Structures are given as C-alpha cells and as structure tokens.
Simulated assay, not measured.
Amino acid sequence: MTEKSSESDEGFLVRLAEWQQGDFALGCGDFLFRDISKLTDEGEDDGGAVLDSEIVGFAVISQTCDVVRDPERIRYVSVCPMVVVDAKRIGQIERGQAPRFGFLSATPDGVVVDFSRTMSVTKDLLVSWERQRGCHDESQQLEFSRALETFFGRFAFPDAFVASVASLRNAILS
C-alpha cells in the first residue's frame, strides 16, 4: 500500500467513524427494491428492479458498532428510506399506532423513517453522503433504538386472536 492510498484509507476510516445509528443523509438518490410486477414479457428482464424517487433521504439503522467496524469484515450498512407523511400520520406515530415509522429529532418537519423498507449500502457509499446527526442526545438515540426494536421485534399474533380483540382495541382507541 502506498503512502497516498494509506492516507485516503485513513480519511475514509475517520469519516466512517463519524456515522452512528440514527444518522441520516438527504437528497442522496433513489431507493432500490424488487417487484415481480415489474418483470417484462419482452425478455428485458431486469429482475424487477424499481427505483422509488419519492424518498427524501436515508437513515442508518445498523448498530453503531457495525457501522464503524472494519469494512474488510463488515462491508455493508442497513439503511431505511425517509419519507414525508401528513399530520394525521404524525399523530398516529406519536401515539404508537404506526410502528413501521420512526422519528429522528433532527429531520425536517413531516419527515420520518420507514422501517418497513430496508436497503443495504456499502460503507464506501455511506461515507460519500453528507452526514447529518439524527439524534441530539442519548435519550433521543435510545428512543430511536426502541422504535427500531418495536418494529423488528414485534410478536406476530395469530389472526384469530387479532380478530377476537378487535372490539376491545377499537374501544380503547376511541
């Protein structure tokens, strides 16, 4: 390794070490996903690749220790798209009725993280984005981590149970 590449590797590692769970970047491209309805009959099969250009940014959901870990060992970071939602949805999120969404305290008004859509990016791409701190203090960081835990750790109740408590749920919510 030459001295010049060693310096650039060091700069890369310094930039990577700045990132943590909950940090985000705005205006950094489209969200890529796959959709079988996008397969073509004309033989131009791109595997169903779809770009969602309505997202406003990406938030890091990987644990900070995995983000900063040696890129030779862990090359990817998980991110979720950030989307704009209306005031009604904000209220539902605040009341815990929309666990698929999470707040970051430093985002623009109406922008939330959509946990239901996750994408992996390389650490090289991550450090090319303009990082913004998502949480201003440890309590906000903990709140975001709990929102992630709520979404990814939810218990899947059987359909029969959900149906049996529907009237009770409606009574509580009203």
Rank of each mutant, 00 (worst) to 15 (best):
residue 160 A to Q: 10
residue 55 I to K: 00
residue 164 S to L: 06
residue 87 A to H: 09
residue 47 G to I: 03
residue 90 I to V: 14
residue 142 L to P: 04
residue 35 D to Q: 09
residue 87 A to F: 02
residue 95 R to Q: 12
residue 95 R to F: 01
residue 59 A to Y: 00
residue 88 K to L: 05
residue 26 L to P: 03
residue 5 S to Y: 07
residue 132 Q to L: 09
residue 162 V to F: 00
residue 116 S to V: 03
residue 44 E to T: 04
residue 166 A to G: 05
residue 63 Q to Y: 02
residue 120 S to R: 12
residue 158 P to C: 08
residue 97 Q to D: 12
residue 14 V to R: 14
residue 76 Y to A: 11
residue 89 R to H: 11
residue 148 L to R: 15
residue 70 D to F: 00
residue 95 R to N: 09
residue 171 A to H: 12
residue 1 M to R: 14
residue 77 V to Q: 02
residue 174 S to R: 14
residue 28 C to V: 15
residue 62 S to Y: 00
residue 159 D to T: 10
residue 154 R to G: 14
residue 168 L to P: 02
residue 53 S to F: 00
residue 143 E to G: 11
residue 84 V to S: 07
residue 76 Y to V: 08
residue 10 E to M: 11
residue 124 D to V: 07
residue 37 S to A: 14
residue 43 G to V: 06
residue 86 D to S: 08
residue 19 W to H: 04
residue 61 I to T: 13
residue 11 G to D: 13
residue 73 R to V: 12
residue 97 Q to N: 11
residue 90 I to F: 00
residue 169 R to C: 12
residue 31 F to E: 06
residue 61 I to C: 03
residue 148 L to Q: 15
residue 16 L to K: 00
residue 162 V to A: 13
residue 102 G to T: 08
residue 28 C to S: 09
residue 82 M to S: 02
residue 58 F to P: 00
residue 142 L to D: 13
residue 16 L to T: 01
residue 119 M to L: 13
residue 28 C to N: 12
residue 146 R to G: 08
residue 27 G to V: 01
residue 150 T to H: 10
residue 56 V to Y: 03
residue 94 E to Q: 14
residue 151 F to M: 09
residue 127 V to S: 06
residue 2 T to P: 04
residue 114 D to T: 05
residue 15 R to H: 09
residue 105 S to V: 06
residue 20 Q to M: 10
residue 76 Y to W: 08
residue 51 L to K: 11
residue 103 F to D: 05
residue 129 W to K: 02
residue 36 I to Q: 05
residue 137 D to E: 10
residue 101 F to N: 07
residue 68 V to G: 02
residue 15 R to N: 11
residue 67 V to D: 01
residue 24 F to T: 08
residue 74 I to Y: 01
residue 37 S to G: 11
residue 85 V to W: 00
residue 55 I to S: 01
residue 165 V to W: 04
residue 92 Q to A: 11
residue 170 N to E: 15
residue 130 E to P: 04
residue 173 L to T: 13
residue 168 L to G: 14
residue 133 R to T: 15
residue 172 I to E: 10
residue 31 F to D: 07
residue 166 A to L: 12
residue 14 V to W: 04
residue 28 C to I: 14
